[in-house]
Each structure stands twice: as structure tokens, then as C-alpha cells.
């Protein structure tokens, strides 16, 4: 098991290097750079100032040198400082990352606790009314983007019932109830939209597993039907479902970032958006890097879960 973890971590290295290059280059490809913005804001326009600021921010170096400087800094745990606020990026991330993580975690919780039971139910009552309803619902969730739903949730309840979801962020440790009241609406929206694919996958896999010979063997032993489902079918059915959850990690994080804008949650999403508008390179690359590493780590966890579920992978 430990060997497996080490092997998987080593396998991440090339991916990490590749990710870092993309992360570093992408923000610099957006037209208009930070110096233009700074100059525009301060109403100074001599060519001289430009060179001074460039040198001060280290942007006068060739891009590959900038990259190496950045990589060396990152390896020593330094993501640089914001070009505008001059605060360390790591400090900002320490504030925003847990918030986004909380939102993502809640959404995943919603997604799995909706998708798996309903997927199983749908499979066991194949072609019943309930099956059709849940399948149509999941198709709808698949087709409707969560930001659009979020907009509806913001607008219609306030028009109809004069109620709007709370938009005041409270840290979890200060007041967990207020925090969850704020986070739950975006978490449910994001969770539902993620649950669509997982639900369909669970249903399909469950139908497949229930046809297997070993399920017939389990029934031939006189086991109760719920034991046949939970002990014999569910684990086999979850193996591919877990993989799917890993593949959804980017959607999860991307969705969280968007919903943060709508529900005014001060997570990485808000931080990223501001930084992109301001061409705040170190902040943007910092956020991207954290997102990239999180996705890789989620997939690592998925791989390990996979081997817990499937004895053939373990040995």
C-alpha cells in the first residue's frame, strides 16, 4: 500500500511540471499587461516609468528566467507577492482556500448523497415511474448550468416571497449555523449539478452488477435483499463511480469558483477574478497552481480509494 502511494506520487511529478508551465504562461497570454493598468490608473505616461516598474516587478527579464525564478520560489514555499497589495500570495490563499474547500466539500457531499441512493433506487425500480422521474431530473441537471440556476434562486424567491438566500459571509468558526446557511444554497446547487452524471453512472453500473452471477449466488444463499444490495452489489458498483468523481474534480472546483461570485463568498474564486482583471500575475498563478495541485491530489485519493474497493488492484 505504501509502495503504491509512493509510486503514484512519483507519477505526479511530470504532470506537476507540465501544469506549472501552463499555469505560468496562461495569464501572461491575456492581452494587456499589469504595467498598462498601473500606468492608466496613476495617469503617468512617460516611457521611463514603464521600465522602472518593469524592473521593480522583475518583468523585464526574459520569460523563461521569470519562470525559473518563480519555480525556485514556489519550491521554497514562496508564491510571491501581489503586484497591487504587496501582500504575500500564500497569506491570501491561507484565507481563501479553506472557504473554497468547504464549498467544494459540501457540494461533493450533496452530490454523492443524492446521486448514489437515487441511482440505486432507479436501478432497482428500472422503468418504473420513479425511475423515469429521477432520470429526467438528472438530464435536466445535466443540461442546466449551475450559475443559471443560481441566478434563478437569487431572483425568483425574492420576487415571489420576498426571500433571498443570505449573502453575508460568516467564518465557520465564528458562527457555524450562519456559515452553513450561507454556504448551503450554493453547495446544493453545485452538488445537484454534479450529481446528474454520478446518478446515471450509479444506475447503469447497478443494473450491470445486478445481472452478474455472483448476485445470483448471494441470493441463492438466502441473504436478505438489502444485504445483497449493500454488501454484494454496492462495492462493485462504486468502483467505476469513484473514478467518475475524480474526473469531476475540475468541474467541482470550477463550479465553486463561479458560484462564489454569485453568492459573494470570499474564497479563491473571488480572489482569482479580481486578480485576473488586474493582471496580478503572482496571485493568478498562485491560485491556478493550488487548483492544479488540488485536482491532482483528488485524483490520487481516488486512485487509493479505488484500490481499497478493488482487491485486484491492491495485490
Amino acid at each position: 500500500m505504501r509502495l503504491l502511494i509512493i509510486r503514484r506520487l512519483l507519477a505526479l511529478l511530470p504532470t506537476l511540471i507540465f501544469t506549472s508551465i501552463i499555469v505560468f504562461a496562461s495569464i501572461r497570454m491575456i492581452p494587456g499587461d499589469v504595467i498598462d493598468l498601473m500606468l492608466a490608473q496613476n495617469d503617468i505616461s512617460t516611457g521611463n516609468d514603464r521600465a522602472v516598474i518593469e524592473a521593480a516587478l522583475g518583468l523585464d527579464q526574459p520569460i523563461y528566467i521569470q519562470y525559473f525564478v518563480w519555480v525556485v520560489d514556489v519550491l521554497s514555499g514562496d508564491l510571491g507577492r501581489s503586484l497591487w497589495q504587496n501582500t504575500p500570495v500564500t497569506e491570501q490563499l491561507a484565507l481563501t482556500l479553506p472557504i473554497t474547500f468547504e464549498l467544494g466539500f459540501l457540494a461533493l457531499l450533496v452530490a454523492l448523497s443524492v446521486a448514489i441512493p437515487i441511482g440505486i433506487y432507479s436501478a432497482m425500480r428500472q422503468d418504473s415511474m420513479g425511475d423515469y422521474i429521477t432520470r429526467s431530473f438528472s438530464l435536466l441537471m445535466l443540461a442546466v448550468p449551475s450559475f443559471w440556476l443560481a441566478t434563478l434562486v437569487m431572483v425568483f424567491p425574492s420576487v415571489w416571497w420576498r426571500w433571498a438566500p443570505p449573502l453575508q459571509y460568516t467564518p465557520f468558526l465564528e458562527d457555524p449555523v450562519a456559515n452553513l446557511a450561507h454556504m448551503s444554497v450554493p453547495a446544493i446547487l453545485l452538488g445537484l449539478s454534479l450529481s446528474a452524471v454520478t446518478m446515471r453512472m450509479t444506475r447503469t453500473m447497478m443494473l450491470e452488477v445486478l445481472r452478474q452471477d455472483y448476485i445470483r449466488t448471494a441470493r441463492a444463499k438466502g441473504l436478505k435483499e438489502n444485504i445483497v444490495i449493500v454488501r454484494h452489489a454496492l462495492r462493485n458498483c462504486l468502483i467505476p463511480v469513484v473514478t467518475l468523481v475524480g474526473l469531476q474534480a475540475p468541474l467541482l472546483i470550477g463550479g465553486a469558483v463561479i458560484l462564489e461570485q454569485i453568492f459573494v463568498i470570499p474564497g479563491m474564486g473571488l480572489m482569482l477574478l479580481e486578480a485576473v482583471f488586474q493582471r496580478d500575475y503572482p496571485v493568478v498563478t498562485g491560485v491556478f497552481l493550488v487548483v492544479g495541485v488540488s485536482i491532482l491530489l483528488i485524483n490520487l485519493v481516488v486512485d487509493l480509494t479505488y484500490s481499497l474497493l478493488d482487491p485486484k488492484v491492491r495485490s
Binding site: 452471477d213 455472483y214 445470483r216 449466488t217 441463492a220 478493488d310 482487491p311
Partner: peptide
């Protein structure tokens, strides 16, 4: 006892 010993046992138990 079933015909297919390969598929009649649950692979994850």
C-alpha cells in the same frame, strides 16, 4: 452450485 466458478464468486469479498 453454479456452472461458472469464475463469475459466481463476488470479486470484492
Amino acid at each position: 452450485i453454479f456452472q461458472e466458478p469464475m463469475s459466481s464468486l463476488n470479486p470484492v469479498l
